[in-house]
């Protein structure tokens, strides 16, 4: 495996290897090198089983991390190829010519993350979201709770109480008022520091 990793580094500008287990390593390569790298791994290094393609939305960095996981039955180990692509107009080279199975993964990524794979068969055919107008739902900024609240309705008559608040109301309402007022006072008087929220 080490030789293969070294090869990926030298041939495809691979970054540091992130060794999770003896038989699982993740390597980051530039997005432009992914198809070549996967082709190399498939044909030269024996990683002929495409386990899965997945995406992770790193919204804070403004990128999607695509993960291609390959397995070698000869070596009994896995290499995960990671590549960052921009979140805006996300697009990636298709690998459906390398693995027939890839087209389904790419279809799903297109639908759920909005990552385009030009040329991939049926890539624009939605699996389930016919007539969907919102942002792709697996993106980090899609708020499932908000969506659910807008789409469905809660059971009527349910209400809950926070134990601490409830106890304050029940047993020491006036002291709670004092506490809050004093707290606001003290907080307001303190010097503002750079990292003060």
């Amino acid at each position: 495996m080490k030789d293969t990793i070294d090869k990926i580094r030298s041939m495809f500008d691979g970054g540091d290897a992130d060794e999770k287990r003896e038989d699982l390593v993740f390597v980051t390569v530039p997005a432009t090198q992914v198809v070549d790298c996967l082709g190399y791994l498939r044909d030269r290094a024996g990683y002929r089983h495409l386990v899965m393609i997945s995406a992770v939305d790193y919204i804070e960095r403004g990128v999607f991390q695509l993960t291609y996981l390959l397995h070698s039955y000869e070596k009994q180990n896995d290499i995960g190829i990671r590549a960052d692509i921009g979140r805006d107009d996300a697009s990636m080279d298709s690998i459906h010519r390398l693995w027939a199975a890839a087209q389904v993964y790419q279809r799903e990524l297109r639908e759920m993350f909005g990552i385009d794979f030009p040329g991939s068969p049926r890539v624009d055919e939605p699996m389930l979201l016919e007539g969907w107008e919102g942002i792709p739902p697996m993106r980090r900024d899609f708020d499932t709770k908000k969506y659910s609240e807008e789409t469905f309705f809660p059971r009527e008559g349910r209400k809950t109480a926070d134990p601490a608040t409830h106890m304050a109301e029940k047993n020491y309402a006036s002291e709670e008022q004092v506490k809050r007022s004093v707290k606001d006072l003290v907080r307001g008087r303190r010097k503002r520091k750079g990292n003060d929220g």
Binding site: D18, K20, L24, F26, V51, M52, S54, V56, T67, G80
Partner: peptide, 20 residues
Amino acid sequence: PGETYVRAETGRGEMGYYMV
């Protein structure tokens, strides 16, 4: 922080969880 993939042989074939 980290990511991993674990797999098992189900009655239908390889099932795996990729967790980040």
